[in-house]
Amino acid sequence: MNAFRLVGDLCHLAAIVLLLLKIWKSRSVAGLSGKSQILFGLVFVTRYLDLVTNFVSPYNTIMKVFFLSSSIATVYLIYTKFKATYDGNHDTFRMEFLLIPCALLAIVVNHEFSPMEILWTFSIYLEAVAILPQLFMISKTGEAETITSHYLFALGSYRGLYIMNWLYRYYYENNFDVIAVVAGIVQTVLYCDFFYLYITKVLQGKKLQLPA
């Protein structure tokens, strides 16, 4: 464990808590893409299959359990409890356009052709693009609630910090996983446009509005 990865995980945790707070306090899922949340749930389910078979540390297990349960809870809140406030008309990104290419790529490009490894690789590829429905929805509605943009900033920062973690592990632990690194870079790059808007607008106290 290094500071980059720890802070990265805490950003990830903060993002998920921010999202649940937004939903619970505003009693609404307006502006949230249920599809992205379904994809994130799938990412955790396919990545943490080794939750009970491969014990790494108490921290690792606790975080995995929290990520799994919170992402499933978020999907539940969006599609059942606060369904009335779900804006399905703007959440129209086709998930199959992400699921199928990630699945095919995971079968072709992986470290080992075994079910667990392919599922882990699929989750890495899927996580890189899982935010696209949410970013697409914001581009359609042209705006995002301030707390939703904080959520996105924390979520985008987490994988950016992981890139620094991978640099650290490469130089100091001689540890390098090209699949995780390449997907992590793609994932972080997808947020760059949003990061620019967040820093120039939200941090100036303005609402996140996309230029019409």
């Binding site: 790494v56 995995k64 990520f67 592990r169 632990e173 390098f176 995780a180």
Partner: peptide
């Protein structure tokens, strides 16, 4: 040799 597995990460 480079160790590849990053399975100790979340």
């Amino acid at each position: 040799t480079l160790k590849q597995k990053s399975k100790d990460e979340l």
